[in-house]
Amino acid sequence: TYTFKVDNKDQAKKAAKWAKKLGLSFQIEKHGDTFKITVQ
């Protein structure tokens, strides 16, 4: 499981695209202005 934080929606979208490309499941949680992405 890999967790990282991004500062904006664009970065969150890029991370989601990357995870989908690799066939991984992911969750994006919004914490105020940051997004926490968990990829597994």
Score class of each variant (00 low, 15 high):
Lys9Ile: 14
Gln40Thr: 13
Val39Asn: 00
Asp7Arg: 11
Phe4Trp: 11
Ala12His: 02
Val6Glu: 01
Ser25Ala: 11
Phe4Val: 03
Glu29Gln: 09
Thr38Tyr: 05
Lys17Asp: 10
Ser25Leu: 10
Lys9Tyr: 15
Tyr2His: 06
Lys30Gln: 12
His31Asp: 15
Thr3His: 09
Ala12Asn: 01
His31Arg: 07
Ala16Met: 11
Lys21Glu: 09
Ser25Glu: 10
Thr38Arg: 05
Asp10Ala: 15
Lys14Val: 08
Thr3Leu: 04
Gln40Lys: 11
Thr38Glu: 03
Gln11Asn: 05
Asn8Glu: 03
Lys20His: 09
Lys36Val: 15
Lys5Arg: 08
Gln11Thr: 07
Gly23Asn: 07
Gly32Pro: 02
Gly23Thr: 02
Ile37Gln: 00
Ala19Gln: 01
Thr1Cys: 13
Asp33Asn: 11
Ala16Tyr: 12
Asp10Tyr: 15
Leu24Ala: 02
Lys21Gln: 09
Gln40Leu: 12
Phe26His: 03
Tyr2Arg: 07
Lys17Arg: 13
Lys30Pro: 08
Gln40Val: 11
Lys20Gly: 05
Thr3Phe: 09
Lys36Arg: 12
Val39Gln: 00
Asp33Gly: 09
Lys17Val: 09
Gly23Ser: 04
Asp7Glu: 12
Ile28Val: 10
Asp33His: 09
Thr34Phe: 14
Lys20Thr: 10
Val39His: 01
Asp33Trp: 05
Asp7Ala: 13
Asp10Arg: 14
Leu24Val: 04
Ile28Gln: 03
Asp33Tyr: 05
Asp7Thr: 12
Lys20Met: 11
Thr1Met: 10
Thr34Met: 13
Ile37Phe: 08
Thr3Val: 12
Val39Tyr: 05
Trp18Ile: 06
Asp10His: 14
Val39Met: 06
Phe35Ile: 06
Tyr2Cys: 15
Leu24Cys: 14
Ile37Lys: 00
Lys30Arg: 12
Leu22His: 14
Gln11Tyr: 05
Lys5Pro: 05
Leu22Asp: 01
His31Tyr: 11
Lys9His: 09
Trp18Gly: 02
Asn8Ile: 03
Val39Ala: 02
Lys30Phe: 07
Asn8Met: 03
Gly23His: 06
Thr3Asn: 05
Glu29Cys: 14
His31Trp: 10
Leu24His: 04
Leu22Asn: 13
Lys30His: 07
Gly32His: 05
Tyr2Glu: 02
Gln27Ile: 14
Lys9Ser: 08
Thr34Leu: 10
Ile28Ser: 04
Leu22Thr: 05
Phe35Glu: 00
Tyr2Val: 07
Asp33Ile: 06
Gln40Tyr: 15
Lys30Leu: 07
Lys20Gln: 12
Gln27Lys: 13
Ile28Gly: 01
Lys30Trp: 05
Asp33Pro: 08
Asp7Phe: 13
Val6Ile: 06
Phe26Leu: 08
Lys20Asp: 06
Glu29Phe: 06
Lys30Asn: 06
Thr34Pro: 01
Trp18Thr: 03
Lys13Asp: 12
Phe35Val: 03
Asp7Val: 10
Lys13Ser: 08
Phe26Glu: 00
Phe35Leu: 04
Gly32Ser: 04
Gln11Trp: 05
Asp33Phe: 06
Gln11Leu: 10
Ser25Asn: 11
Asp10Met: 13
Tyr2Asp: 02
Lys5Val: 15
Asp7Met: 11
Asp33Ser: 11
Val6Met: 05
Ala15Trp: 15
Asp7Gly: 11
